[in-house]
């Protein structure tokens, strides 16, 4: 989002928005793992919280509306790890293809 104020989409304090939805959910195992990967990769110096946020903000408003919180986080973690040279996009693609063949649920694909 670009407007004459120079405000980016994530800078939403004070804007109009709808009613609060107080619903909460327990975090799924895969979401907790995303959080843990962020903390561990940061502790290893592979990227910082600023790097995480930069990729999240660059994803734009559409991602904020269409992806869940930890979906955006894993996309940002991936972007940062690719930039850090931890693995290549080819390595990631090949592994994701293998994982997709393991089953149709998370536990099957994750082997637990």
């Amino acid at each position: 989002m670009t407007d004459t104020t120079g405000r980016r989409w994530h800078d939403m304090g004070g804007l109009d928005a709808g009613p609060l939805d107080p619903a909460e959910h327990d975090f799924a195992l895969w979401e907790k793992r995303v959080d843990a990967l962020m903390v561990l990769a940061s502790a290893k110096g592979l990227f910082t919280v600023d790097g995480l946020r930069r990729a999240l903000e660059d994803m734009g408003e559409e991602a904020f509306e269409s992806m869940s919180y930890y979906e955006r986080w894993i996309a940002s973690v991936n972007q940062n790890l690719l930039e850090a040279g931890v693995y290549s996009i080819e390595e990631l693609g090949a592994r994701m293809e293998d994982i997709s063949k393991r089953g149709t649920t998370y536990s099957e694909a994750a082997n637990g």
């Binding site: 959910h25 975090f27 799924a28 195992l29 895969w30 979401e31 793992r33 995303v34 990967l37 561990l40 990769a41 290893k44 592979l46 992806m67 869940s68 930890y70 979906e71 894993i74 996309a75 973690v77 991936n78 790890l81 931890v86 693995y87 390595e91 990631l92 592994r95 994701m96 994982i99 997709s100 089953g103 149709t104 649920t105 998370y106 536990s107 099957e108 694909a109 994750a110």
Partner: peptide, 27 residues
């Protein structure tokens, strides 16, 4: 976001990144 929902693209990415970080000895 239930544990028994069908596997999603982003879950596959999480599994792949986790396995790559382990294979490469980072964690």
């Amino acid at each position: 976001p239930d544990n028994d929902a069908p596997l999603t693209y982003w879950q596959v990415m999480e599994i792949a990144i986790r396995e790559l970080l382990i294979v490469k000895g980072i964690t």
